[in-house]
């Protein structure tokens, strides 16, 4: 279990990443902003899951279970969308 200072540092990083989404939209062209925003969301997810949910401390297989679920939805969304492209 980490210290409150560490959790606070993660919290600040999450706030900055949240703001970054709006900034990307203002500064970049549309599709570059989409990429930036999704990257920012992925990093936020990694910080929350890794350190607030302590995935880094759990057996690695738990991370694989989560990634398996994420992979399933990415597959469903991307293949379905591609099918009507």
């Amino acid at each position: 279990m980490a210290s409150i200072k560490f959790y606070f540092a993660i919290y600040v990083a999450l706030l900055l990443l949240a703001v970054s989404k709006v900034v990307f939209m203002e500064l970049l062209d549309y599709w570059a902003a989409v990429g930036g925003i999704m990257l920012s969301a992925a990093v936020k997810t990694g910080l929350i899951a890794g350190f607030y949910q302590h995935l880094v401390d759990e057996p690695r297989a738990v991370t694989w279970v989560v990634l398996m679920a994420v992979a399933a939805v990415l597959l469903l969304a991307s293949a379905a969308t591609f099918s009507i492209t």
């Binding site: 989560v66 679920a69 994420v70 399933a72 939805v73 990415l74 469903l76 969304a77 379905a80 969308t81």
Partner: peptide, 10 residues
């Protein structure tokens, strides 16, 4: 729940 939310987003 990831799959449920993911399917909604998908």
């Amino acid at each position: 729940d990831i799959v449920i939310f993911g399917a909604f987003i998908g």
